[in-house]
Amino acid sequence: MNNKKLRRMILIAVLGSIGTVLMQFNFPLPALPGFLKIDFGEIPAVLAVMTMGPVAGIGVELIKNILHWFFSGSPTGVPVGEIANFTTGMLFILPIYFIFNKFRTAKGLTVGLIAGTVAMAVGMTALNYFVFLPMYTYFLNFPPYTGNALYTVVVLGILPFNFIKGIMLMLISLLLFKSMKKWIAQQRTQLMA
């Protein structure tokens, strides 16, 4: 195995582990459903897509969620929350990669982060409506959300939650980019070339 591949694998593993730790420091937002919790575990995946590309970002998200499930377990017995978090991460980081890859500036990153936030908020709203909330209620043996309750949880809870989460991730990512711009460019040159 050549040195570049080994460095990439080590960096993906380290970023995935950092993402797992960041997931542990989660917190709910007032006035939104308590099961929705903000965490900053997507930040290492954002760094991965900026320095190594989309496969690395997916790897970070995968490691982060597998380790989180391994250490924290799941109230359903099935990693529904981790699957939802992985999906959230994909919806957030892939637009960042495609836009930042074309425009490697703070402006390009900002546009990518905005696109990622919109994709995450809209995508997770639809996926929670059709997939994740029904999975939770099924595996927890709760009565399914229907009618106004489902609308309230999805449109008045999940949609604004993901927009707020995306904005918070955007601000942190931009601050990190500003302070780590040289390192990101250096890593990108060494690991992507």
Rank of each mutant, 00 (worst) to 15 (best):
V154M: 11
V111D: 07
S173F: 05
P28V: 03
Q24D: 09
L62K: 09
G157N: 09
L150F: 03
V60G: 13
N65D: 10
F163P: 04
K4W: 05
N85G: 08
L140W: 01
S179C: 06
Q187F: 09
Y145K: 11
G108C: 05
I158Y: 03
L191M: 09
G112Y: 04
I93S: 09
I167G: 13
T51D: 04
K165R: 15
K37W: 02
N141R: 15
T105Q: 07
L174E: 10
K181L: 01
M50Q: 11
T76E: 11
N148S: 15
F86H: 10
L174N: 14
K107Y: 04
V153N: 10
P28I: 03
G116V: 01
W69A: 14
P95M: 13
P95V: 08
W69D: 06
G108T: 06
A126S: 00
I158S: 08
F27N: 12
V155D: 06
G77A: 06
V153G: 05
K5M: 09
G123E: 01
P28F: 02
V131F: 05
M170P: 01
I18F: 07
L91T: 11
G157V: 07
G41N: 11
H68E: 05
M192E: 14
F70S: 13
G16W: 01
L171N: 13
L109Q: 11
F132D: 04
V21W: 09
Q190I: 08
L169M: 11
M170N: 02
A13I: 04
L171W: 02
Y138A: 14
L91Q: 14
L191I: 08
T88V: 02
G16C: 04
F98C: 11
E42A: 14
T146F: 01
G108W: 00
M9V: 06
T137M: 10
M180L: 15
A13L: 08
M23P: 01
M52R: 12
I18V: 13
P79A: 03
S74G: 08
A185M: 13
L11G: 05
V80S: 09
M124R: 06
A48P: 10
V21F: 12
N26A: 10
V153K: 14
G123V: 03
F130G: 15
L159T: 06
Q24I: 02
G77M: 02
K178D: 03
G59A: 06
N85M: 03
A121W: 00
F86Y: 08
M192F: 04
L150T: 10
V153A: 10
K64E: 01
I99T: 12
I96P: 04
G34K: 14
E42L: 07
E82I: 00
A126E: 00
L91W: 07
A48C: 09
Q187E: 14
G19P: 04
Y151M: 06
A115M: 04
L176G: 07
I38Q: 11
